[in-house]
Amino acid sequence: MTLDSALVPTVNSTQDSSDPAIQTRNFSIRKGRQTVIGALSLDIPVGALFVVSGRFASGKTALLLALAGRLRGFSGTATVFGHSLRSGGGQVRHVSALAETPIVNRLDDDLTVERQIAAALVLRQPWWKPLVTHKAVALCLVRVNALLREVDARAGDLLGKRAAGLPRLIGTDRIVCLQPLDRAVLGVVVALIGRPRLLIVDDVDTLRDTDDRTRAWAALLTLRIAGWHDLTIAASGQDPKELFEILERIDDVQPAPARPVCLLDLDSAERTLTALTRKA
């Protein structure tokens, strides 16, 4: 499957492919006198699904925003695709993107799907090219839906169903009228237009329906885009039990290879990284 060039990232050839996507040493986040995250040392491989779990207010969002270069007030060292979080925050922001995060980058309820996609495309164009054509938006939407169908089929294998039920985005639908899973998918789609190497999906638990959460985890686990083999995903949830259920069954099905999964449980006293899969 091929995607529009607007969705295919350029590869940073200066980084060794064996280097981790995310690496931290004694990384801490403080808010005033309070330590939000304390002394983490992580090595997240390229192409992994990095899952941060923990109770409400455990620091999940703060950690993900910091690793995406959107939060200050940290100590220790961290690199994202070889870029230092301390001295190269601009480069980190360039290679990372946030799916919809209500506090930081909420989708515009007054827009339609196609207008939201158009706005994302405009942001990635040179300043002297402030408009996009209807054809470019329509082509992007067609190819995005092709990607969703492919992910749907793979996630369906994992869920033991013919199809997992991922939505098909319709350009004229208003964002305020979208169902929660539709909206979550659009948030990811808009983020992918920015050609990131690190995709941040904060709080999958905002999807209240169990089936929706299961489908979302299955999609993140199996998401593959032609020519885009180094996309790393960092996601969070209070208790990603639906993901654990999928991983228990993963050897019994034959979808496209699943991402390696790394879990950081912020409720654990050790706060060490656990590899849940060894698949590439």
Rank of each mutant, 00 (worst) to 15 (best):
R215D: 00
I175P: 02
Q238K: 07
A163C: 05
S236D: 09
T210K: 13
P196F: 04
L158K: 14
L207D: 05
A155V: 13
T210E: 14
A163R: 15
D203M: 03
G156P: 10
R174F: 15
A219T: 06
G156H: 11
I170H: 07
K161Q: 04
R154N: 12
L221E: 13
D202G: 00
W228Y: 13
L207C: 12
A164S: 15
A155T: 15
D173Y: 01
H229N: 11
L199C: 11
A153Q: 01
D230V: 04
V188A: 10
L169G: 12
I225S: 06
C177M: 15
D205N: 11
K161D: 01
P240F: 00
I200Q: 06
D152R: 01
T210P: 12
G237F: 12
D209T: 05
Q238N: 05
L231C: 09
L166T: 01
A163S: 11
D203C: 01
R215Y: 04
D173I: 03
P180M: 08
R183S: 02
W217T: 10
L198I: 07
T222P: 07
V189S: 09
G160H: 10
Q238H: 00
D202T: 06
I170T: 11
G165H: 15
D212R: 13
V176I: 13
G187C: 10
V189D: 10
L207R: 12
I170K: 14
I193F: 11
T172Y: 12
L192G: 00
E150H: 07
A226E: 13
L186A: 00
